[in-house]
């Protein structure tokens, strides 16, 4: 392909080529990783040494700085795989199912951590680790959906066929995201309603907002770095599978 042809390609076409996507995004990894590490160091310092106690919850408010980012990512990652699923089914983008496959285990991890930190925050705050209410139950369902998607990927040898089945399953599972979001408004629950992204701004003082947003961005950038790296690995894994197939065909008389 000549330089002239390359320059005429749109960014969409250029990132559609797995090799070019890896070449484009590899230089981003190190700066993003450094930014993530800095955000974590500063965020943890604010969380433990600069954040005041909450007037009701006391020091347990510090659990919020890891709970809220993980809860946010549990849903954000699902939004990412939903868009990737559309990319697979509608646009047939070659990287959409790579993105989907790389993001799912990370989404499962963040959801499990949201449930874990939520349980540890719930015990001293509500007096119980777990309650079968709308928010907690729908988040547990989200974890099962993630695990189901991982199981589906592993059930197929043909990754392109798996991608279409997983994409349909992902789109059906997306119905759970608005249920999680509005569960605190629809049903009686121990969980507090939205208090960060609300009209009129966050309902908390700046001294609590600063560590919360630092940790929020630290975890979000952590996801972006890990997702990019996992996508690079998945692209290489597919190349490995193609080469193994070619070698096997050549070896067959």
């Amino acid at each position: 392909m000549s330089n002239d042809t390359t320059s005429r390609q749109s960014w969409w076409q250029r990132i559609a080529h797995p090799g070019q996507f890896v070449a484009w995004t590899t230089p981003l990894l190190m700066p993003l990783a450094i930014l993530t590490a800095v955000l974590f160091v500063v965020g943890l310092w604010f969380a433990f040494f600069n954040s005041p106690e909450d007037y009701q919850m006391g020091d347990t408010v510090r659990i919020m700085y890891v709970h809220v980012p993980n809860a946010w990512l549990s849903q954000f990652v699902y939004a990412v795989i939903t868009v990737s699923a559309l990319g697979t089914l509608v646009w047939r983008h070659p990287l959409a199912d790579v993105s989907m496959k790389a993001a799912v285990p990370l989404g499962a991890l963040f959801t499990a951590l949201a449930l874990f930190t939520g349980a540890l925050w719930g015990r001293p705050t509500w007096g119980t680790f777990w309650e079968w209410d709308g928010r907690m139950t729908s988040t547990l369902v989200l974890l099962f959906i993630y695990l189901g998607i991982i199981a589906l990927w592993r059930a197929f040898d043909d990754q392109l066929r798996a991608a279409r089945v997983v994409a349909v399953f992902t789109l059906v599972g997306a119905i759970n995201i608005p249920i999680i979001k509005f569960s605190v408004d629809w049903w009686s629950t121990l969980h507090q309603p939205a208090s960060v992204f609300v009209p009129g701004g966050p309902r908390m003082p700046l001294s609590i907002q600063i560590p919360l947003f630092l940790m929020f961005f630290a975890f979000t950038f952590l996801f972006l770095v890990l997702h990019l790296k996992a996508m690079h690995t998945e692209i290489k894994r597919r190349r490995v599978m193609t080469l193994q197939r070619k070698l096997a065909q050549r070896a067959t008389p």
Binding site: D59, T60, R62, P124
Partner: peptide, 8 residues
């Protein structure tokens, strides 16, 4: 970290 330090 107060009385609930173990949870934090």
């Amino acid at each position: 970290l107060g009385p609930h330090a173990v949870f934090i």
